[in-house]
Amino acid sequence: MCTGINRTPESMGTPLSLDLKEIKGMRFFDPHIHMVSRTTDDYQAMQEAGIIGLIEPAFWVGQPRTGIDTFKDYYSSLIGWERFRSSQFGIRHYCTMGLNSREANNEKLAEQVMELLPHYIYKDGVLGIGEIGFDDQTALEEKYYRLQLELAKEANLPVQVHTPHRDKKRGTTKSMDIALEHGLDPSRVIIDHNTEETVEEVLERGFWAAFTIYPFTKMGNERMVEVVKKYGSERIMVNSAADWGISDPLAVPKTAALMLKMGIDKKEVERVTFYNAVEAFSVTGQLSVDVLNEPLKIDAEEKFEGNTVLRGGQQPKRNTESIIIR
Rank of each mutant, 00 (worst) to 15 (best):
T320G: 14
A209L: 06
E301G: 06
S322N: 08
V309P: 03
D41S: 09
G312S: 12
Y43F: 15
G183I: 04
M12Q: 12
Y122R: 10
L149F: 04
E294L: 00
G13R: 07
M176R: 00
L157C: 05
A110L: 07
P9D: 06
A155M: 08
K317I: 09
R223G: 08
M114T: 10
P249F: 05
E131Y: 07
I190G: 00
G245Y: 05
R27S: 08
K261Q: 15
E321W: 08
G62N: 14
G25L: 05
H165C: 02
I52K: 00
N194P: 03
Y275C: 02
E197Y: 07
S175L: 06
K72S: 04
V202G: 11
D299N: 13
E142T: 15
T308F: 08
P164W: 07
T8K: 09
F134E: 04
P31R: 06
F281E: 02
N106R: 07
Y122C: 07
R235F: 12
L20H: 05
I132A: 02
G220C: 14
F304G: 13
D192N: 13
T39N: 12
I129S: 08
T195V: 04
R27N: 15
H34E: 01
G133M: 05
L203S: 14
P57E: 10
Q63L: 07
V189L: 11
Y74A: 03
G13I: 06
I33R: 03
C2I: 03
E201I: 11
V159I: 13
